[in-house]
Structures are given as C-alpha cells and as structure tokens.
Design a protein around this nucleic acid. Structure first.
Length: 496
RNA sequence: CGGGAUAUAGUUCAGCCCGGUUAGAAUGCCUGCUUUGGGAGCAGGAGGUCGUGAGUUCGAAUCUCGCUAUCCCGACCA
C-alpha cells in the first residue's frame, strides 16, 4: 500500500477532515470559478435522492413544480426595501449582452456598445420575480392558494466559501405559496417545516430542533422564519432548512390583490421555504468518521455492495453461481445493490474504498464461504463484521439496513443530547460556549441583548424551540445577561 | 476590504537563502509479469512554457519590481 494517504483525523483538524472527505469520497471538487463547485456523479446521486424524497413529500402537500428565470430585473429588487438589504451585498450583476474580438488580438472582450438598458441580477432567491408573476395569476379567491416550488441554482457572492456548506452558486429548492388568509399562510409555513423535519430525521437520519428565528436571524422580508437546526460532530450548529411566513410584504410590494367572496380587494398572504445542497454538508458532518463517509441507508445511492474474492476467473465463475442469485434477490426486494466483479483492484482496496464512500452494508464472499455456505456481512456505521449462513441472508440484510438507519439517527441524537446543556449565568455561558454544543439559556427577547452576546462570544440564537427538547422543560425565567423576564429557554450556539 | 503566506509533473511537495550543463521525489497514470480474505510486489515508460509581465546578469525556478490567482487569519454572511 506504500504511502496511501488516510484522511486527517477529525480530532486533529475537523475542517481539514471535512475538506478532504468531500474530495476523496468523490462528492465534489473545486472548480475553475472561485467559490463555485463541481458536484461529481457520486455526490450528485445523493443530491438526487434528497430531491426525490423531498419532491414526493412536497407533492403530497399539493405543491407543483415550476421554473422561473435565473435573471431578475434590477428594479424588482428595489421593491421590497428590507428584502433587498438582506441580499444586496452579495448579488452578481449582468451588465452586458455581447462579447467581441479584442482589437489587440488578445481573445475576447466585453463589447462596450452592448450595455443593457436595465441591468439584470442573477437570482440570490426568487421572491421578487415570482411575486411579479403571481400578480398576473391572481385575481380572485378562486385562484388561491398557489403552491409552487422550483428546483434551481442561485448565486450569493460569498467572501469565503467551503464545498457544500457555503458556495457562491448552490442548488436548492424554493417553494413559494400564495394564500387568501393569514392563518392559512402561517399554517402552511409550519407544515412545510414539519415536512423538512420529517425528511431530515427519517431519510437523512439527522435529528433536528424545530424552532423560530430571533429577529436578528430572520429572513429579510419575512414576518416569521421557522427553521430546523442540527448539531454537527464538532458541536457547531447548522441550519438545515427554513420556512418563512412572509405576511403581505411581497403582495404589497408587487401589488398582488384578490377579490374575496365578499367582493373586496385583499392583499395575498405568502410563504417561502427552502433547503439547499448545504444538506450535503450536514449529512457529512453528522454521520461520517475518520475512515470516510457514512451514509444512512435511505439516502445511499448504493445500499449494499457485494465483493466476491477470487484469484482466477474459474474462482469468480464458481462464486457467481451463488452471488448472482443473491444480487437478484436483493434487487427484487428494492435494495440498491452493486456487485463488484472488477479484477483490477484488490479486495482490500475495495473494502477501504467502499468505506470511504459510505456504503452502508458490504457483503464479501470468497472460497471459504463458498465451501461453508456462509457470507461475510460488514456494516459501515459500526465498522463491525460477522460471518453468517448464506441461506435467508436477504431477510437479514433488509432488517440490517433499517437497523443501520436507526443507529445513525440514534447516535447523532445521543451526541446532541450529550452536548446540550442549560446555562444560567452569563459568566458560565462565556466559558461553556467555548466547549461547543447547544446552550439552553434565558434571553430577554431583545435584539440588543442577542447582539451583545454575539459580539462577546460569537454565539447566536439558533432558534427559539417550538417544543421542549428531550430532558429539558419549557419554563419561564430571567435573561442571563439583563435579568429581565424570559418566556423560555432558547438555543445558543456557534453556527456554520 | 485589512493582515499574513503561497504559486515547480494529474496531486502533494523538495530545490530558491548562497544564480551555473539535462529541474527532482513520492503518489497517481500507462505497459508487462507476478498477485488478490483489509489500501499488493517487481521491472520498464510517459508526463514540466518552474503562475504571469518586465528588470538585473554572460547566464534566472533561484535576485528585484509590477500584475494575477489561490490559501490562512480578521471583517462580511447563513
């Protein structure tokens, strides 16, 4: 094996480990354009599973997919003052529409005569273009609700980027809904939060805290922002999804009104909600270990890999009489299974490589197993293996995949619980926050106090939990900084 | 945008301080043989405008200046 390079261990340098893992597990790589990534086939396959699972859940909620343009007229972004303030600093602007040959013979230059009358903004999010369109779609209460989603790319010109976690261009879905009443819109924003939480926990095996954002962390232009927050293995928080109740802000900015049953004009109520390729970062930092990626089975492009161990073609032929039917049986059970008969790399290499790629279950069969009627079953999450009778192994594999899925979730949840603690004084807070994790504290509800805490410690309020966390009560108290009354403990953490 | 560093083979890096024929290593890649139950071994081979532009010099990867790009720290952001 000579100088094969292992991953940097997490304990040594967590962010180095992350960067290496993303590249070595073949998920993504840096592109020629600063801040933009190439998502490689293996990484994209995982994203496609995320898309498929979410898309199905959206459709169950009555959502339809649509597509709105990449480019947004600059004037649209001026309509909603608060909204534009949130994004103005990170927008890419299209100013010209033509290139021409450089008269000095050095390739092409931007044709100065081709300046756009109105500059176009590459979407940082699509509220404005969508609401300018919804205006044309809505005239009566009969047109409501409108429940649209789009899968697309957006661009936010970030200063500092990291693969999946923060890139200048990223993939996401953005849902945009229009409702007749405030109650319906608020309820819908909440429902979509539940969709996200259900998806995160049951498919990605990531435990999340459902909550509301404090005013400082709220989406620009929203009246209320709901979120799901997850804890990474280094104790930092990562926002995994958001759902906004936008009130009538965009309806008023774009003059979207409907005629009610009572023949009165009313402004429409709105929501928007989204998750992005950042979920890939959450996935990696929740489950993976020093040997590589760990994928929960529900998300793994390959759930089971079968590795026959052979020296000669005859050996493989013999093994195939057993392994090929097994492959078919597993496939028939709906398992995403791969049979690796490649003779160009050794079993040892394959074992290490499938571990790096996070394949949940690995089956190995060689001459000894063939004689004994057994097969070696290795699970990625625990790195354990056992030799089992081949007869009826499919049933075991089906159950094992579910067990791995559950274990991934439980491990992550145990970690979060172990690193979530109540803190009552600000002095204690300043010490505890250095250790990472979530701190449950009383806060007086003012942006000023949150700002002060952020300046002192870099910690922010990740959310105001909607329900009590396991092992903790929702209770009134006094703000740890000002001593003023607090309605309940909120979650503080250092965030990604 | 401030502060620091780096730029040499596909990748990671050595060489630079102290200028001198043909710029090295590891890994990866290609070929052949031998191998295959935890990242195989041996032999051979291909692969470089030394980021870019100027300057100093008989001579520059090496010294000087400009430019560009990347990375780290800060600021900004979710």
């Amino acid at each position: 094996m000579a100088n094969f390079q292992k991953l940097t261990p997490r304990s040594e340098d967590y962010s180095k480990w992350y960067n290496e893992l993303v590249v070595k597990a073949d998920l993504a790589e840096q592109s020629a354009v600063r801040g933009c990534m190439v998502i490689k086939p293996y990484g994209y396959a995982i994203w496609e599973t995320i898309q498929a699972e979410l898309d199905r859940r959206f459709k169950e909620k009555g959502v339809k997919n649509a597509y709105f343009p990449l480019l947004i007229p600059k004037s649209f972004l001026s309509r909603e003052a608060e909204h534009v303030e949130g994004f103005a600093k990170e927008c890419a602007v299209v100013t010209h529409h033509r290139l021409k040959n450089d008269p000095n013979g050095k390739g092409v230059i931007v044709d100065p005569d081709a300046r756009l009358e109105e500059e176009l903004i590459i979407r940082p999010t699509s509220e404005t273009i969508i609401w300018s369109t919804y205006k044309n779609w809505i005239s009566s209460y009969r047109d409501l609700p409108i429940l649209c989603n789009q899968w697309c790319n957006v661009m936010r010109w970030e200063m500092r980027t990291r693969l999946f976690l923060r890139t200048a261009e990223f993939l996401w879905q953005e849902g945009h809904t229009a409702h007749a009443t405030k109650e319906e819109a608020e309820d819908y924003a909440r429902q979509m939060l539940d969709v996200y939480a259900d998806f995160a926990e049951n498919v990605m095996a990531i435990p999340v805290i459902k909550g509301v954002k404090s005013p400082n962390e709220r989406f620009a232009g929203a009246l209320n922002t709901y979120c799901i927050e997850a804890m990474m293995q280094d104790g930092k928080a990562l926002q995994a999804g958001t759902s906004h109740f936008l009130g009538q802000n965009f309806a008023k900015s774009f003059d979207v009104q409907y005629l009610s049953k009572e023949n009165k004009y009313e402004y429409v109520w709105a929501t928007s909600w989204g998750v992005s390729t950042r979920l890939m970062g959450a996935l990696i930092m929740t489950h993976s270990d020093d040997n590589g990626l760990v994928l929960p089975p529900h998300l793994a492009p390959t759930q089971v890999v079968i590795v026959p161990i052979f020296k000669k073609q005859e050996d493989l032929d013999k093994l195939m009489t057993v392994v090929a039917p097994l492959f078919d049986k597993l496939k028939a059970r709906g398992i995403r299974v791969k049979l690796d008969t490649d003779d160009k790399s050794t079993p040892g290499f394959k074992f290490a490589d499938y571990e790096l790629k996070g394949v949940p279950v690995r089956l190995a069969m060689g001459g000894r197993d063939l004689e004994n009627g057994t097969i070696e079953v290795a699970r990625r999450d625990t790195l354990t293996k056992e030799t089992l009778p081949l007869a009826g192994i499919e049933e075991h594999i089906v159950n094992l995949l579910e067990e791995v899925q559950k274990n991934c979730y439980q491990k992550a949840l145990d970690y979060r619980i172990a690193n979530t603690r109540e803190v009552n004084s600000y002095d204690e807070f300043k010490e505890e926050i250095k250790k990472g994790g979530f701190l449950l504290c009383h806060w007086d509800g003012t942006p000023e106090t949150e700002e002060q805490i952020k300046n002192d410690t870099k910690a922010t309020i990740r959310c105001i939990p909607l329900e009590a966390l396991p092992g903790h009560k929702q209770e009134e108290g006094k703000c740890m900084v000002t001593g003023k009354p607090s309605a309940g403990r909120v979650v503080f953490a250092i965030a990604y």
